[in-house]
Simulated scan of single mutants.
Amino acid sequence: MKLQQVKIYHLKMPMNFTFTTSFGSMDEKELLVIEATDEDGTVGYGECVAFVAPWYTEETVKTSLHMLEDFLIPMLLGKVLHHPDEVSELFSSIRMNNMAKASIEGAIWDIYCQQTKQSLAQALGGEKTCIDVGIAIGLQPTKEALLQAVKHAIDQGYGRIKVKIKPGADIEVIKTIRQVYKDVPLMADANAAYTLDDIEHLQQLDAYQLLMIEQPLAYDDIVEHATLQRALKTPICLDESIHSLADVKRAVMLGSCQIINVKIGRVGGLTEARKIHDYCYEKNIPIWCGGMLEAGIGRAHNVALTSLPQFTLPGDNSGSAHYWAQDIITPEVEMKDGKITVPTTPGIGYHINKEALAKYTISTKTYK
Rank of each mutant, 00 (worst) to 15 (best):
Y350N: 01
E240N: 11
I73D: 08
P286A: 07
G296N: 09
I276N: 07
A300T: 05
S119C: 12
G296V: 00
K162G: 03
G347N: 00
T20A: 13
D40S: 15
K354I: 07
H322I: 11
D110H: 08
L305E: 03
S307K: 10
D189C: 09
Y158S: 00
L76R: 04
K166Q: 14
P216Q: 09
M212C: 12
S320N: 08
G319T: 02
G125Q: 13
H243T: 11
V52L: 12
N284Y: 06
Y181N: 06
D27F: 14
L228E: 04
L313K: 10
R250Y: 02
A356H: 04
H10I: 09
I276C: 01
V248H: 06
N284K: 15
M212P: 00
Q118D: 07
G268Y: 08
T345C: 10
P84I: 10
T364W: 04
P331N: 09
P235D: 09
A226T: 03
V33E: 05
A251I: 07
E144H: 11
L3Q: 04
T341S: 10
V87D: 06
G157W: 01
T42L: 01
A246P: 01
G125T: 12
P14G: 06
A188Q: 03
F17A: 12
Q115I: 03
K101Q: 07
L308S: 03
V303N: 03
T306M: 14
S307L: 12
E59F: 02
